[in-house]
Amino acid sequence: MKATRLKFIFLAFVVFFFFSCNEAKYMQGKRTYDMVCADCHMEDGSGVKNLYPALKTINTSITTSELACIIRYGINKESSLIKMPPNPALKSVDITNIVNYILGDLNGSKEEYTLNEIEVMLEKCKEASKEQ
């Protein structure tokens, strides 16, 4: 009797820790996101109205390659009131982690991008930024 109760308590702990550890699937991406992106786009990705766009509802409004390129090169359009600074210090692997965190954890997307795929996307917008 006592043994079953102990087992039950143990199991309850395991289940509890399993769920509490499982908050973010992409922890590395979350850490970088919290450091680099969260000041403006907020930790939960809710943004601030139209000034700093929300990132938790971008599933359909932006392509993954646009997302990766904006993270690296920022937004510096004449028309935008607040310019987003570029992040030259972020390596492709950091950007891959952030993209997976934003899409997977904040937007609940099932798709996951590999470093190779993101590098191809970044290479393309590097060429595009040269052409301008």
Partner: peptide, 16 residues
């Protein structure tokens, strides 16, 4: 200030 990339957006969210 508008070009403040650090604490301002967070404070602005709280003002909102």
């Amino acid at each position: 200030f508008m070009n403040c990339p650090t604490i301002c957006p967070i404070v602005m969210k709280q003002m909102l």
